[in-house]
């Protein structure tokens, strides 16, 4: 009875805001599955070298794009920006769940960003991961003379990875990008 009425509540909440909805909290069983093991999928962001690799990847990208002949500094920085932002959006905000199997899909509803540090906000890893794209954008505008189009492309790319990281958007989903969560079983 109680689970039934809770189910109805969830469904009603989703319907009332068709554009955006909040991922409902996990069932007790799912929470206990999450607690069985540390989340190996999200733990590595706190590991040594995981921070450095962002900088290394950005430098490598810059070198690779600079090697290509007849690429201006503006294009090269923009490509670095877009590549990094696209990669990190895909990794931290698009893909949900865990790509390998060790806890029976206990995190299937959460993306990587939400899994980091057990859903806590403003942790060191999250601060670093937010600072990297902003710094990259500031550095790239500094070393180039963007025209308006280039500037907007770079700025929007930065916003695309910064906005989903805001604590206010924790567990929020755009309904037209994400299919409705499957109804929980009775």
């Amino acid at each position: 009875m109680s689970s039934n009425s809770k189910d109805k509540d969830n469904r009603r909440r989703r319907r009332s805001s068709s554009l955006m909805y909040q991922e409902p909290p996990e069932s007790l069983e799912q929470q206990s599955d999450q607690a069985v093991l540390p989340n190996l999928n999200a733990q590595w962001v706190n590991a040594k070298g995981a921070w450095l690799i962002h900088i290394i990847i950005i430098l490598l990208l810059k070198i690779v794009y600079d090697i290509v002949p007849s690429v201006t500094q503006e294009t090269s920085w923009t490509l670095v920006n877009i590549t990094y932002m696209f990669g990190s959006y895909l990794m931290f905000h698009w893909v949900r769940g865990i790509p390998f199997e060790f806890n029976a899909g206990a995190y299937d509803n959460l993306n990587m960003w939400e899994q980091i540090d057990n859903e806590d906000q403003y942790t060191p890893a999250k601060k670093f991961l937010l600072a990297v794209p902003i710094c990259l954008f500031l550095v790239s505008t500094h070393y180039t003379h963007y025209d308006l189009a280039y500037f907007m492309i770079n700025f929007l790319a930065t916003l695309a990875v910064v906005v989903p990281k805001l604590p206010a958007l924790h567990r929020m989903r755009l309904a037209f990008l994400n299919p409705e969560p499957q109804p929980t079983d009775q």
Binding site: N118, E119, D120, Q121, Y122, T123, P124, K127, L130, A131, I134, C135, F137, L138, T141, H142, H145, F151, F155, T158, P167, H170
Partner: peptide, 30 residues
């Protein structure tokens, strides 16, 4: 960085201030 465009600089300043505020915020659990 100024490049004769105060609006761009404002946007950048805004991003910078936002980043600093985010970095200084205390951690909390959801």
């Amino acid at each position: 960085s100024y490049q004769n465009d105060p609006i761009r600089s404002l946007v950048e300043l805004f991003l910078f201030i936002f980043a600093v505020r985010y970095l200084l915020a205390p951690a909390y659990s959801t």
